[in-house]
Design a protein around this nucleic acid. Structure first.
Lengths: 209, 209
DNA sequence: CGGCCCATTGACAGGCATCAAGTCCGGTGG
DNA sequence: CCACCGGACTTGATGCCTGTCAATGGGCCG
């Protein structure tokens, strides 16, 4: 069966743009495409039947979003910042999977990466104490953040989204960040920037003191 | 279509027993085997560096435990009740995966099942309100429970484990169950049995009123 | 029968959600 | 260039939820 409509051979050559807030795909849509993020940050959003909004994960450059493990997307994907992404067809991704399976003898790394992320959020949200949750969350994404000249990390995530990820309220996130600032564990030199000033204590809090 | 995976003469012929509390494998052990549960209930346990214990999921008859997506198990697997299980070698499982991949054109269902379970716990734990968490949890496992003659479901899970799954305390679980009983949403005819007496309200609570 | 673990219940304090203002910032339009 | 506007962030006050500690009861197993 050859690819129907969207058989762009140059498919992976052109990165498409998306503006902040834009929707890549909706929950329960048939997963016909895998989105490979090239630049920017995206979020996975799950909305319960009554409108409770949870963020199931954040995606960074290099991540694959919306793997077709089942027929329909389990969450909605939205751009947090402006994006560049590439859209692979489901079949193309499936071929790559089988190739990686038979050649390397291991599963496509993106499957593990996706599951790892979901698993990690479960553990983080399962902690009690907002300080621990925030520090654990920041630790889990710190490797994906770009560092400024003076050592500050660019963190372009609205606190609303952090709250939705950590299953708490924006006010609580704000207060927790202030507390960390007053403890001299982190610093916020500029808007959207954060610096970890006391790494040891930071990790201690993340792991539950 | 002939029966797919289960044609192993020796391997799958003998189901091994395990007693309640027994460990199947430990977190961070190399995942050399996949455990197929035939009878009983098992739990996945994650223990944080400081000893905080979370249950990442429950496994029922038919489930595959410990898929080798990465090199090492991400959680410890323990028997909740007495078990019967079959242990497949990693290679054997991998072969079955590739076969299912190339023949059916879809991934091994167990991968999806595992990810589904992890995802669902994240959503459940992310809710606030213990009543909602408990009802959502029970809804998610009710299909795996066997029903008694009088319509009561066998639920052989200690409240301690339910609490560790829901990221709360055993006392809170007990109080929440009592509250549901007083609301006539559930009934507890015998120890380890539960009956849902008001399905509509039950689902309403599970979904957040 | 004794011991142990689990379930239950009560008392209490602390954390966090919620509501309500107020402030800051970037963007837009005049 | 400036004024305006809307959204995000911040802060305070308040009450409920739930975690914690402690004690009791109950069932199971040795």
């Amino acid at each position: 069966m050859h690819s129907p409509v969207r058989s762009q051979p140059q498919c992976s050559a052109i990165a498409m743009p998306a503006h902040a807030g834009e929707v890549l795909f909706l929950e329960a849509d048939p997963c016909d495409h895998v989105y490979e993020l090239r630049r920017g940050i995206a979020r996975g959003v799950y909305i319960s039947p009554e409108g409770e909004r949870q963020i199931t994960g954040f995606f960074f450059a290099g991540d694959q979003i919306g793997l077709p493990l089942c027929d329909r997307y389990r969450f909605t994907a939205e751009a947090v910042t402006d994006l560049l992404y590439i859209r692979h067809s489901r079949l193309h991704w499936h071929d790559a999977l089988i190739r990686s399976c038979t050649e390397d003898g291991r599963l496509h790394p993106s499957i593990m990466a996706e599951q790892d992320q979901i698993f990690r959020r479960g553990i983080i949200v399962g902690r009690n104490g907002v300080l621990a949750r925030i520090c654990a969350f920041l630790m889990s994404i710190v490797d994906h953040l770009s560092m400024d000249a003076d050592g500050a990390l660019l963190l372009p995530l609205p606190q609303i989204d952090i709250a939705a990820y950590l299953a708490t309220s924006p006010e609580t996130v704000c207060r927790a960040l202030r507390q960390l600032r007053e403890m001299h564990v982190i610093a916020v030199p500029r808007r959207d920037y954060i610096a970890i000033t006391d790494r040891a204590r930071f990790e201690a809090i993340a792991n539950g003191i």
